[in-house]
Write a protein that binds this DNA or RNA. Structure first.
Lengths: 267, 267
DNA sequence: ATGCAAAAAAATGAATGCAAAAATATGCTT
DNA sequence: AAGCATATTTTTGCATTCATTTTTTTGCAT
């Protein structure tokens, strides 16, 4: 007996991995699968796929803050049954991206003022740690690379190119975390960064000229401490830098006040 | 209308929560649920229940390091079907307590030398952050409480009472994290603490007399900086303290070398 | 015996099914 | 018509089922 016609998802997984290299003969009825295959990483389990995709989906803001997560719809969108999707929901809840309501599914976690303050502070603590660790082992080449990024960013600052400034700024912070040579730290940092990605971005755009100049000076100090491999000084400087970012972000949030408390109270 | 006799699992959840009113540790991911459910019925989901119990089960070392997690056995042990248990497994994998092997279930994650170093450093970074934040808002009463714990611990040190010393020591560190008034930090800290709980404990028992005295002096310095609310100084001191703990722990691990690399290679 | 291949058994991953709970719609009473 | 209670639909949580993969056992040849 042959079941080739029975296009169960698990069968498709195999097809996918075989087909992926050529990437051209994917059946038209499996669009969802095609999307998955597109994502270059060779994810093995459907659970991992869905987790990754759902996380992106939420982080990118496809579901409004505080809204319920439409389980069934997402199943259709991703072309999977509820089981792997629900597994992903539990993980995202553990990550703090969504909340689970008893017998009421999940909803996108709404970040209030306090949540943001806490997140920025923890990010600050982690970058602070990263800087300290980086000073222990960073090579001249790595410092040179961060210097290059720094001056590239300075160029964008001079040209008032906010978008590219933001991009390079992010890369500098990521590099510092990377050269700390601590994978555990990197994972946790990436997780938190995901949670505040949207806010961070918009907060940056709302930056006042004043704050921008200040941030540049702070980055000078960061680079300086890094060059001298002054661990605790860099630690302090990075934390203060993030503290100031926090202030800017929370101020910006003040314009569009979205507090989770309002919803929590009515229940 | 009353359906008490209909013992479906979901009904049992309620009964169970009534029977076990004092949960030792509310899992961080369930905080929101606990809060929400608090107004009215304190009903936890089966998922949360199993997650919490399975986490404890693994942390307490009921499964040898690197061993496969026996899915079916655990289902019988906890009296649930595979669905909620598997959901818990995914979450624990995300927390880093276990690893998922494609088509081969899960196994308890084995912490090698490098993993421990990284974990201790991140713990150090988080405590360092906690100390810094604590200095911003800590009250005299809170300092007094930590002082009390400190002198209690000192007493155990003088009596060479390792067990109680360890307990109070833990509580001091937890208090510092608590008074940082950052729930996000507290959650992440608790998560990491869980991962290294066993190692940390045994490492502490293996402590050399020399290291013990050193640790006491470090704690003096910590308390001193806290009294003066010297944020960055406390930050440095706490990190160095954890760095020294790391050294002690890794040295101890050297006696019983259990590296995950050995297993990873054979596959 | 020892090593390998095939078959049986067990375990895994994911879909489906089903009862309880929530959300929504409908029908009553005032 | 407004308010409330009941019926219907939808959603949710978990158990069960099923195809696939891995592991173990069995049989066979060397």
């Amino acid at each position: 007996m042959v079941f080739y016609m029975q296009f169960r998802p698990s069968t498709l997984v195999i097809l996918r991995t075989i087909v992926t290299p050529m990437k051209s003969t994917i059946p038209e009825s499996e669009m969802a699968i095609a999307q998955i295959a597109d994502n270059g990483s060779p994810e093995l389990s459907l659970h991992g796929e869905i987790l990754s995709r759902l996380r992106d989906y939420v982080v990118e803001g496809n579901i409004p803050d505080g809204d319920r997560v439409p389980e069934r719809q997402l199943c259709e969108l991703f072309g999977v049954s509820r089981t792997p999707l629900r597994e992903a929901l539990k993980v995202l809840a553990a990550e703090g991206l969504i909340e689970l309501l008893p017998n009421r599914g999940a909803r996108v976690r709404q970040l209030g003022k306090r949540d943001l303050e806490e997140l920025f502070d923890v990010m600050g603590g982690l970058e602070s740690l990263a800087g300290r660790l980086a000073c222990e082992t960073i090579t001249d080449e790595e410092i040179a690379e961060i210097e290059r990024l720094h001056y590239e960013m300075y160029g964008y600052y001079l040209h008032r190119d906010m978008h590219n400034y933001f991009q390079v700024n992010q890369r500098i912070h990521e590099r510092i975390v990377a050269v700390s040579r601590n994978e555990t730290l990197r994972t946790i940092y990436a997780n938190l960064a995901g949670r505040i990605r949207r806010v961070r971005y918009s907060a940056n755009f709302a930056r006042k000229r004043q704050r921008w100049a200040e941030a540049m000076r702070e980055h000078e100090a960061i680079l300086d401490a890094l060059r001298r491999r002054a661990g605790s000084e860099l630690s302090d400087t990075l934390f203060q830098h993030l503290r100031n970012k926090r202030t800017a972000a929370v101020e910006h949030l003040g314009c569009t006040p979205e507090g989770p408390t309002a919803e929590a109270v009515d229940g």
